[in-house]
Design a protein around this nucleic acid. Sequence first.
DNA 1: CTGAAAGCGCTTACAG
DNA 2: CTGAAAGCGCTTACAG
Lengths: 375, 375
Amino acid sequence: MSDTTLPRSTSRVIAAKATEPGEPRSTSRRTFDDARKPISLRDVAAEAKVSVATVSMVLNDNPRISRATHLRISRIIERMGYQPNRLAQSLSSRYTRVLGVMLPALRHAFADAYFGELISGICDRAGKMGFKIMLEQAKPEFVKERKHIHIFERRYVDGLLVLGMNDRHHFLEDFADGRYPLCVVDNKFNQWKLDHAVCDYAGGAEQVMNYLLQLGHRHIGCIYAAPEIQTAADVLHVYRKRLGDSGHEVDDSWAQDGRFTDEGGAAAAAALLKRHPEITALFCGNDKMAIGAQHYLANAGIRVPEEVSVVGFDNMQNAAFVTPSLTTVHLPLYQVGALACERLIDRVRGRAERVAEVLPTHLVVRNSTAMARQS
Amino acid sequence: MSDTTLPRSTSRVIAAKATEPGEPRSTSRRTFDDARKPISLRDVAAEAKVSVATVSMVLNDNPRISRATHLRISRIIERMGYQPNRLAQSLSSRYTRVLGVMLPALRHAFADAYFGELISGICDRAGKMGFKIMLEQAKPEFVKERKHIHIFERRYVDGLLVLGMNDRHHFLEDFADGRYPLCVVDNKFNQWKLDHAVCDYAGGAEQVMNYLLQLGHRHIGCIYAAPEIQTAADVLHVYRKRLGDSGHEVDDSWAQDGRFTDEGGAAAAAALLKRHPEITALFCGNDKMAIGAQHYLANAGIRVPEEVSVVGFDNMQNAAFVTPSLTTVHLPLYQVGALACERLIDRVRGRAERVAEVLPTHLVVRNSTAMARQS
DNA sequence: CTGAAAGCGCTTACAG
DNA sequence: CTGAAAGCGCTTACAG
């Protein structure tokens, strides 16, 4: 602990300069003992010889303050290096200017590039709009103790963005009445009336199936995951429908759960190829599973793409740097995060209408796909 | 906007139950119009027929309150579903129970698994210790406008964790006086007196060099990055020193900057092998660059590990799922994040001594390394 | 156009 | 062991 009796440098020096030589002595009630205390509205008001109300209104750009006064007081605020205490501001104004970001309670959730991209978009946009981001994880206790409501009641946040949620996150129902602003990021729920911004997963899946069918693939396996997530279910649905439409029998033995992980993808690829050696293409629900599948295929001596084509979904950073580089669907996750954030802030500011934003996706063709082999 | 004239359900229902039938009417000053207002300390005090001070002390487990009173009032708090307004709490108590986490201003920084692991550790530990996490990015304006100080002065945070910072982040100097609690995560600075918790990079590098030299490698290239980061410089230093000690000429042409990216790693590998075709091993400063190097080698028709061994650094999730799986150094990033968080909270609570924590690392041998080829 | 005063919802000396 | 009151640092009607 440093010596309290010594005056400090930094901001206090700036404040000291506030009284120019020759000016009448400041009427501020700050004493020498206050040296470590931050400057308050009162100090600024005393220095400027106006009321605290006036300084407050200058700070909030209230039009009732004359241009001259505004300018004069702004200068004093600047010179004194005054920073408003936002706890006091929020307590009075009832806005915190903080948004919560809720992640699922997965181990090391933040290390997932999928969530990372969304959060990057959210943080950038929030920062530009004057909001801070607070992190939450949807742990079982969290929901059981109704902490998702408490963060509002206790005034931690003005709104909440939820990522990676699924149909079993029943607490989302508590937001259906619109009392507490919430926006679902990159997912959607039919059972609850909630704002959302989402990538067009079904559209991306259509492009993949078109492409594979055009290349002559007829024996296409699917490595899916988490069908309780609507967007993941959409992809699986398109896969089945397009295969059925093209006159092929659709049978659950052609689809295998890969749990969205590298390991799961490898295991699912192994299971599918054992069951159906005639498979010429694997359509994977994310890039990680696709990379796991490629890993399995390489170890099993099956060449990609000559013998089996592999398609991912995400377009994560490393998709271009595996061997062979991965054909995948690009998801504008950064943009979805930013858009969801903006829509949530609109809501915090009073917008009443629900929003449902869908951002387009597109196929990125690389080297993991080729014409179906002649078998 | 929903109808304001209707009484709401949820928490108000609970509060209504607080007056049991037959009890005298509550003396609370809450009226019907208050229906949407959250319950305050005053309401609880009125209901319990004690002063707000007493309820406050119950809330803060102040020992001056008798066990009987504590129990009785706790029950009432529970029954009413009261949640203290933490803005008011913080304004009075001068603690926010929020920690800032600062990331460098890299594009899509959150999508990096390295930062993600650290943040996972930080969030878990912070949550367990009753703290929330607020996100910040060290954008140029941010530092120029001294926002790193303002988040303290404005009472956003009690302490700050900084990730991915380097010697050019001069704003860290402002924390050397210990006035505002800060902890450097997975890095260290010799020029500024700051708390830190860091992985043993030099120790990991020693293990890599031992291993490669034992396998008979003598022509070892190094793909490094960001030598302005102390830990990265440590790795480069160990590489040079061990090569020199084993009687080899150390020459800058054997090391190449790979900018910590897949692309950079691929380009650096290409440059090194063009310059020195006799290279039998590449030691990379992180897994991403190693995977990029593997990608280049595969495309160039150079077999890994038969012709060239590749070693990474990080042990990121996918290191085990590239082909061939990657030999690398495991960094306990989750643990470093958690430990840094805990040390920062100690500091917030008043610990005066500086701390410098170092966590051990270890080599993980997989399939990207083998005996040096006979050339 | 500006000021005095009440209020936001807590905590914390200070009395008793 | 508990209460009355001041205070944390702002904003916002309400006067003038």
